[in-house]
Simulated scan of single mutants.
Amino acid sequence: MKIAVVAANGRVAGKVITEAVNRGFEVTAFGRKENNTDAKDYVQKDLFDLTAEDLKGFDAVVDAFGVWTEDTLSQHSTSLAHLCDILSGTDTRLLIVGGAGSLYVNPEHTAQVSDGPDFPDAFKPLAAAMAKALTELRERKDVKWTYISPAGDFQADGERGGKYILGGEELTLNSKGESIISYADYAIAMIDEIEKGNHIQQRISVVRE
């Protein structure tokens, strides 16, 4: 399969690229900085400068965009809207590296992880910005998107265990009562979804088995 990874310089993106390359995917990475990934094909270009022509012909595009400072949080919405606009009406799938704060914690889907008393105040603006972007994404019926939320404890340096539980809109715990996954196992789930998943216009989530 032929995939593109956008905002490729980050650590989650790096794990996704490595997983895809190791499985024999044809990967093109797009990033603002010099290539620090395992992708042989690399285009140094800002996400906001990408055009429909740049992303033409790919089976899937992985959006690994992320910002954290208060003055840039709105870019979660604007970057996703830009990618949706240039993929609108095509068969190319758009898979988004999402957040856990917007996962629901009740069957009625009225309370989210970020609403909980133990959710750190420092992360609430980020969670709100990512939740807003997801809400806007749900309105896009012209794009074959899939939003993949990690577990609550998303570990950059966690081991690659190779097994995970696929969840949906609600926070899912493993048999130990944990909500945890490594970047490496998240990458496995992302590439599995590209390879054999069909959660079109859905949000799914993953947790370590």
Rank of each mutant, 00 (worst) to 15 (best):
G66D: 07
E108W: 05
S205M: 03
V67F: 00
N106L: 05
E178N: 14
E19S: 07
G158P: 07
P150C: 03
E169Y: 01
G197T: 09
S205E: 01
S74P: 01
R138K: 10
G116E: 15
A64W: 01
A7W: 08
G10P: 05
L137R: 02
I188A: 08
S149D: 03
P107H: 01
L173M: 03
A64P: 01
A64S: 11
A129T: 03
A20Q: 10
L137S: 08
E108C: 02
I204D: 09
V67P: 01
G162V: 14
A100W: 01
K15N: 15
A7R: 00
D118V: 14
V206Y: 13
E169F: 00
I86C: 11
A20G: 12
D85N: 12
A189H: 12
I181A: 10
F154A: 07
R32N: 06
I180S: 15
V43C: 06
G89S: 11
D63M: 12
V113H: 01
V12K: 04
T90Y: 09
G177C: 07
Y164N: 13
I165F: 09
S175F: 02
F48N: 06
D185R: 09
D41V: 05
A111C: 06
A129V: 04
V27H: 09
G31T: 09
R140G: 11
S74V: 11
A131P: 01
N106Q: 10
L87E: 03
R140W: 10
T69D: 02
D49T: 04
K196D: 14
E34D: 15
H109D: 15
T72N: 08
V5I: 08
V6Q: 00
G10V: 14
Q44T: 06
K124P: 13
A133H: 01
F119V: 14
V27D: 00
R11M: 14
K144E: 11
L166K: 15
L166C: 12
V67R: 05
S175H: 15
S102M: 03
T110W: 04
H109K: 13
V5L: 14
L83F: 03
L50R: 00
G152R: 06
A13W: 12
A81W: 00
W145G: 01
S79K: 00
A20K: 09
A129D: 04
G167F: 15
G98L: 05
P107I: 02
L95G: 03
G152L: 10
I3P: 05
I3N: 04
E53R: 13
L73Q: 04
E19L: 02
P107N: 02
D54T: 12
L171I: 05
S114R: 10
E136P: 00
Y186Q: 02
G167Q: 11
N174D: 15
G152V: 03
K176D: 15
D91M: 07
E193G: 14
I200Q: 10
A81C: 00
L137E: 08
T51Y: 06
D85F: 12
D49N: 05
F123L: 11
G101P: 08
L134K: 05
G168P: 04
N174H: 11
Q112D: 05
V27Y: 13
V6I: 11
V16G: 13
A20L: 12
S102W: 00
C84P: 04
D49I: 06
V27A: 13
G177H: 13
F30L: 07
K176I: 04
V143D: 02
K132H: 13
L87A: 05
